[in-house]
Amino acid sequence: MQSPIETVFDEAENRYLKTEELRSLGQYVVSLPERVSIYRILRDQELTLMQQVADQLQIQQPDAHPDRIERSLKHGILILRYCAMGMLLADEGFVQSRLLNWLSGVVQIHNTQAIDTATSALTIQVLSKALAPKQMALLEPFFALSQNTLSQTAPENHLTVAGIF
């Protein structure tokens, strides 16, 4: 998926936009105030929301090392920030290429799939309480994309400093 705004620029010299292209642009414009207000909520409440995730994660995973929990929370915050921006632009490609292609490698190297899945589920749970269902519907595809990409990363038997030689 490409940002609806971006595709508009492609062919200005050759033709006017078709009815369905104008319609999809119109839909995007109509949805924009809602997108901006969701973005504001996420921006202003990031700390509170993610603290709730952190608290629940520690209850859920009492044996996990604090470093792993911290790392996973950082991944969770990055995902939230990129999904917020992707939602604002209505551009899944943005989240995929800027964050997920890279993050999937990081998750693999640190072997944090399991805990990241838990963090992600908790984030969605917390967001569902903070946002109206209509708002959540705009945000959900981006989280689905992240969960989907990260769940496909197979744990890798990889180099660690301790394990090389």
Binding site: L47, Q51, V53, A54, D55, Q58, L73, K74
Partner: peptide
């Protein structure tokens, strides 16, 4: 407890 505010110093 982990503080998210500390993570985002």
């Amino acid at each position: 407890m982990i503080s998210v505010a500390d993570l985002l110093m």
